[in-house]
Simulated assay, not measured.
Amino acid sequence: MTDTTAATDTLVIACPTDGALNRVPGARLSAAPKCGVCKSPLFAGKPVELTAVSFDRHARSSDLPLLVDFWAAWCGPCQAMAPAFARAAAQLEPTIRLGKLDTEAHQAIAARYNIRSIPTMILFHKGREIARTSGAMPAEAIVQWATANAPAR
């Protein structure tokens, strides 16, 4: 996915470490920006472990599309897809944030999005569900699916 954000556009990016909201010029997304609060990198090339607190911050408050893997520890296909999802994160950042949500630990969020089978991936943008797919995928298919469904910038 190419970054076509104009140099004057500023995006709000949630920090994967502390959830702080950071304003980053679109032209600097690829320049390894750091959180203004905790100084951690805003992009680590790996999925963010989402919680009840951080889910809404990343899904609703951040300007980046968020691809969430709804999973559970007991799910064999979820475990099999985890390395592929991590590889996809390295390829999709900084244009799409990837996050993982444990459906056992955060049942209310899973219920809110009517998660009935896992793994299920949902692509969000500014709090809205854009696309959904279920079933394990290899990294290349995750990247292709996310890129095809992500909103244009």
Results as ranks from 00 to 15, higher is better:
97 R>M: 14
97 R>G: 05
65 P>I: 08
85 F>S: 03
78 C>W: 02
86 A>M: 09
35 C>T: 08
90 A>H: 13
78 C>P: 00
119 P>N: 06
63 D>K: 03
100 K>Y: 05
46 K>S: 14
57 R>T: 14
103 T>Y: 02
86 A>E: 15
58 H>D: 10
41 P>N: 11
82 A>L: 10
119 P>W: 03
88 A>P: 13
81 M>R: 05
108 A>T: 11
73 A>V: 13
58 H>V: 01
39 K>W: 06
87 R>F: 04
63 D>G: 07
79 Q>P: 01
109 I>L: 12
96 I>C: 04
77 P>D: 11
78 C>V: 03
103 T>I: 15
37 V>F: 08
91 Q>M: 09
79 Q>T: 09
107 Q>G: 12
80 A>Q: 14
83 P>F: 14
64 L>I: 08
100 K>H: 03
101 L>I: 10
31 A>L: 14
115 I>W: 02
100 K>A: 09
115 I>P: 02
98 L>E: 10
90 A>S: 14
104 E>N: 13
40 S>N: 08
104 E>T: 15
98 L>P: 09
90 A>Q: 13
34 K>E: 09
52 A>Q: 10
80 A>H: 04
37 V>H: 13
76 G>P: 09
82 A>R: 15
38 C>Y: 10
63 D>M: 02
40 S>P: 00
98 L>G: 08
82 A>N: 10
37 V>E: 12
108 A>H: 06
119 P>T: 02
45 G>Y: 09
56 D>L: 01
53 V>F: 06
66 L>K: 02
79 Q>D: 04
107 Q>F: 06
75 C>R: 05
33 P>C: 11
32 A>H: 04
48 V>Y: 02
36 G>A: 13
35 C>L: 13
117 S>T: 15
60 R>L: 07
88 A>F: 12
46 K>C: 06
61 S>V: 00
80 A>Y: 06
62 S>H: 02
82 A>F: 14
65 P>R: 07
43 F>Q: 08
65 P>A: 12
52 A>I: 00
54 S>D: 01
40 S>C: 10
78 C>S: 14
72 A>E: 09
70 F>K: 06
69 D>W: 07
78 C>D: 08
89 A>E: 01
71 W>G: 05
112 R>V: 00
43 F>V: 00
65 P>D: 10
91 Q>K: 15
59 A>N: 07
106 H>W: 03
116 R>I: 05
33 P>W: 07
108 A>I: 00
32 A>K: 09
65 P>W: 10
99 G>M: 08
97 R>K: 12
119 P>I: 04
53 V>S: 08
57 R>I: 14
31 A>W: 08
106 H>P: 00
111 A>S: 13
48 V>G: 04
57 R>Y: 01
56 D>T: 05
50 L>C: 06
41 P>G: 03
68 V>Q: 07
72 A>R: 05
78 C>N: 04
64 L>N: 00
110 A>N: 03
72 A>S: 12
105 A>E: 14
72 A>Y: 05
72 A>I: 05
109 I>W: 04
71 W>C: 01
107 Q>I: 12
48 V>E: 03
56 D>G: 15
88 A>L: 11
46 K>N: 12
60 R>Y: 00
61 S>G: 06
85 F>M: 09
67 L>D: 01
34 K>C: 08
38 C>Q: 07
104 E>M: 07
102 D>G: 02
64 L>F: 07
45 G>S: 11
39 K>D: 13
63 D>S: 09
34 K>W: 00
33 P>T: 10
95 T>V: 15
